[in-house]
């Protein structure tokens, strides 16, 4: 059974079919790419998967559980975490606090505990701190833990967003254009990090990307979207050689 099963997903905005008859199966541990020209509906698919939009039709199953139409919070708890195309960090919080917000639902203590500073507060905070530092280390951000996240350079902000998403302990990670705005060195480093996530964290990853070097370098399978419909899907090499895909990207 696939980790993520999407069948016949559909949504319209007014008269526009933004996503139509979208089917996708992602196996556990897979690194899957979603590509397509601008406006093809890739981010809309992400928004449908994370509950930002409710689909008009179709079923989304995660690990066999139907999560169609659930709220963003429930979907996150069920095991889908995402990053955003335009970085959405908690800018006035420190780097480590951004990750701690991601850890929020895995560690519990009451409001009264925090106000009264009961022993449980210190115990749980220490655990959270250790866990957050361990995550930051994976992304090579541990030196900047106390910096305001807004002051990080661009590439590190992207990494921090991934770290924060990972902190929610997801089964499936959605990355929306992780390499956007990165220089070749940063992209290279990002590819390594994503590989680490797949190998060491056994993470299943679905990513949207325009950078073909990254896509062909790390994605095992691809789905190509055009005008809200699936153009083709299959393993990366075959898909990228498909003349229809080349036509969709480069025109006639």
């Amino acid at each position: 059974m696939a980790l993520l099963e999407i069948s016949n997903l559909q949504i319209s905005f007014g008269g526009l079919r933004a996503v139509d008859d979208f089917n996708l199966n992602i196996e556990k541990g897979e690194l899957y790419g979603l590509i397509g020209p601008n406006g093809a509906g890739k981010t809309t698919v992400f928004n449908l998967l994370t509950g930002e939009y409710k689909p008009d039709e179709g079923i989304v199953k995660l690990d066999g559980r139907d999560i169609t139409g659930k709220s963003t919070i429930e979907i996150n708890k069920a095991g889908i975490a995402r990053t955003f195309q335009n970085i959405r960090l908690f800018k006035q919080l420190s780097v480590i606090d951004n990750v701690k917000v991601g850890l929020h639902n895995q560690y519990q203590y009451s409001t009264a505990t925090s106000i009264l500073r009961l022993p449980k507060y210190f115990a749980v905070e220490k655990e959270m701190n250790d866990k957050a530092m361990a995550l930051l280390k994976v992304f090579d951000l541990d030196q900047e833990a106390e910096y305001l996240s807004a002051n990080l350079p661009y590439g590190k902000q992207r990494k921090l967003e991934i770290a924060r998403a990972l902190a929610t302990n997801p089964k499936l990670l959605l990355l929306d254009e992780p390499a956007a705005g990165m220089n070749p060195n940063e992209t290279e480093e990002l590819m390594k990090t994503i590989k680490v996530l797949q190998k060491d964290f056994q993470m299943t990853i679905l990513l949207i990307e325009h950078d073909m070097k990254l896509v062909s370098g790390i994605c095992e399978r691809l789905t190509v979207l055009n005008f809200g419909r699936i153009l083709t899907q299959g393993d990366t090499k075959t898909v990228l050689k498909n003349p229809e895909v080349i036509k969709a990207y480069l025109g006639e």
Partner: peptide
Amino acid sequence: SRDGRAIMSIRDNHIAAESVGI
């Protein structure tokens, strides 16, 4: 505290806060 960080995360970016389950 945990609650305080959640409150400040809403202030900074409510869409992202919701996406991490706040």
